[in-house]
Computed example of a mutant assay.
Amino acid sequence: MSSEFNTAEESPGFTLWQVTNLWQKSIRQALEPFGMTHPQFVLLFSCKWLNDKNNHAGITQVQLAQHAQMDVNVTSQVLRTLEKKGYIRRSPHPTDSRANVISVTESGDEIATQTVIAVEREDRAFFSSLGEELGELTRLLQQLMRR
Rank of each mutant, 00 (worst) to 15 (best):
L64G: 12
L130H: 04
G108T: 02
R121Q: 04
L43G: 12
S46I: 03
L16V: 03
S129A: 10
W49Q: 15
F127G: 03
S76M: 09
T60N: 09
R139S: 03
L137V: 06
T37H: 01
S11V: 00
A57P: 05
F127Y: 09
L22H: 09
V104I: 02
E32R: 14
H56D: 10
K53A: 06
S2I: 08
A65C: 05
V42N: 07
N100S: 15
K53N: 11
N55W: 13
T138M: 14
V74K: 13
N54Y: 15
R89P: 05
K84Y: 12
S91L: 14
T20K: 02
A30K: 03
L144Q: 01
M145V: 14
L130M: 14
V62Y: 00
T20Y: 03
Q114W: 06
T95W: 15
A68C: 13
K85A: 13
E9S: 12
T15H: 04
E83C: 11
I117W: 05
R98T: 15
F41Y: 15
L144K: 13
N55C: 00
A68H: 07
L31M: 00
Q63I: 07
V72E: 12
A125R: 14
G13N: 14
L130K: 09
P92I: 13
A8L: 11
D123F: 04
D71E: 03
M70W: 08
N55H: 14
Q63N: 07
E133R: 10
L134W: 10
R124I: 11
R28M: 07
L141T: 08
N51T: 05
Q61H: 09
W17L: 12
F45C: 00
Q40F: 06
T81D: 11
N51R: 00
L82S: 06
S76W: 05
H38T: 11
Q29C: 02
F45K: 07
V62F: 06
W49E: 10
D52H: 13
F45N: 09
A8I: 12
S103H: 10
Y87A: 07
D123I: 03
E106G: 03
Q40V: 08
F127A: 02
V119G: 01
G108P: 06
I88C: 05
S128E: 04
S91T: 15
E83A: 03
Q66Y: 12
Q142W: 10
S26R: 08
E122C: 15
V116I: 15
E9Y: 07
N100M: 12
F14V: 13
I27M: 12
T7L: 08
M70H: 01
V119S: 11
T15F: 13
N55M: 12
G35S: 08
M36N: 06
M145H: 11
T105G: 04
Q77G: 11
A125K: 12
A8N: 05
R139W: 09
C47L: 00
A57I: 05
S128V: 02
Q24P: 00
T75D: 09
L82E: 05
T138F: 11
S107V: 01
F126W: 04
R124T: 07
I111R: 03
T60F: 01
T138A: 12
V72T: 09
F127K: 01
I59S: 10
Q143R: 15
E110Q: 13
Q77R: 15
E10I: 06
L50D: 10
S76P: 02
T115C: 14
T95Q: 14
P12M: 11
H56L: 04
L82W: 00
T115L: 06
L79W: 01
R90S: 07
I102E: 02
Q18K: 10
L43N: 14
F127V: 01
